[in-house]
Design a protein around this nucleic acid. Sequence first.
DNA 1: CTCGTCTATTGACTTAAGTCAATGCAAGGT
DNA 2: ACCTTGCATTGACTTAAGTCAATAGACGAG
Lengths: 190, 190
Amino acid sequence: MKDILYKYMSRWTSLNEEDQQIIVNEIRIEEFTKGTVLFRQGVIPTACYFILEGCVRQYSINEDGREVTSNFYTEEQAIAIFNHHKPDKSSDYTFVCAEDSVMVVGDLDLEKDMYHKHPQLESMTRRMMEQNFSQVQEEFAAFIASSPEERVKTLLMKRPSLIDRVPQHQLASYLGITPESLSRIKKRIQ
Amino acid sequence: MKDILYKYMSRWTSLNEEDQQIIVNEIRIEEFTKGTVLFRQGVIPTACYFILEGCVRQYSINEDGREVTSNFYTEEQAIAIFNHHKPDKSSDYTFVCAEDSVMVVGDLDLEKDMYHKHPQLESMTRRMMEQNFSQVQEEFAAFIASSPEERVKTLLMKRPSLIDRVPQHQLASYLGITPESLSRIKKRIQ
DNA sequence: CTCGTCTATTGACTTAAGTCAATGCAAGGT
DNA sequence: ACCTTGCATTGACTTAAGTCAATAGACGAG
């Protein structure tokens, strides 16, 4: 499992193998069963996560009590940015494992120390985040400009496996449409 | 104009006034007239920007030749994340001044040097970006979950000045609806 | 001042998605 | 094996947004 991590880190840092090992050894890897809640809407998260295997769904309960899915995270994706813009830093979302999953778990209270001990780590984090950010912005722009049907097609192109991995009504919510519409769009586009 | 910058930096760093001055003195502040293009879709950006005054519109031309507005940046917003996820780093968007504007201009090729010279700057950048990122994610989640009419209401709430600052058909595009619909929605909600 | 261009509004019509309700299906529990 | 529960599909109907076209106002150029 750690080899995924080494492969990933090599893409992002110029650290030599030795230094990488030191960092990886300080890292906690945990397994979670499907349905495990990482943290709930309203609480202040104490950890961040990097998915090595599995799938995590991000959702919230809106004013009229409906569940709104806002993201799915899968292999090699980080769950690390939550409500830094809110004064109290509490999460607006609940994160729950949609499958049995294996993740790197990073303690947020150790973050500063880690950056201090390994200055290259802050740099790596920043660049990962930039990449991540730019991807989200692109997705957002594409979402704005497309119809429900186009959004379904795009998802089928870009993340075909999601369809089989998560319940359809959650996918519908993630696409901003009703489950009925998703069902009909699927039929329409075969 | 630089006082806006000092105020802003104080919110983000623990640098003393002296160090702030050193950094601010290395910084380039430029004025742009309405219509000035910062950089075009397809080219690799060489600078990043921080708006002190004015408004910048981000748009792209899609496959069928239509102009799609994907963002408006105004005072105290940074234009700094472009296509770090694409191998060639070329911009998918054109950035154009929607008003006469004053901005901090940061050379991207000096970025590394600056971070090396002022380690706290990388830290500050990272935290600004985290905040920014988390805000975009929240907006995205809200966008997904709301109807065109709700999106208009939300925009009127959160950025009321935009309505007067930019042409309505660009706003419509930014909201993912047609200009006709925006006109009707406005009438509907008075 | 007038012309031309660009933009916002309005109307008539179409269409895709939402809503509500019924049915069917599969998985899990007893 | 049965029942329950939750999910996907389908149908009938409503509605809001899209499309196309016409009009009218604002603005700048000449």
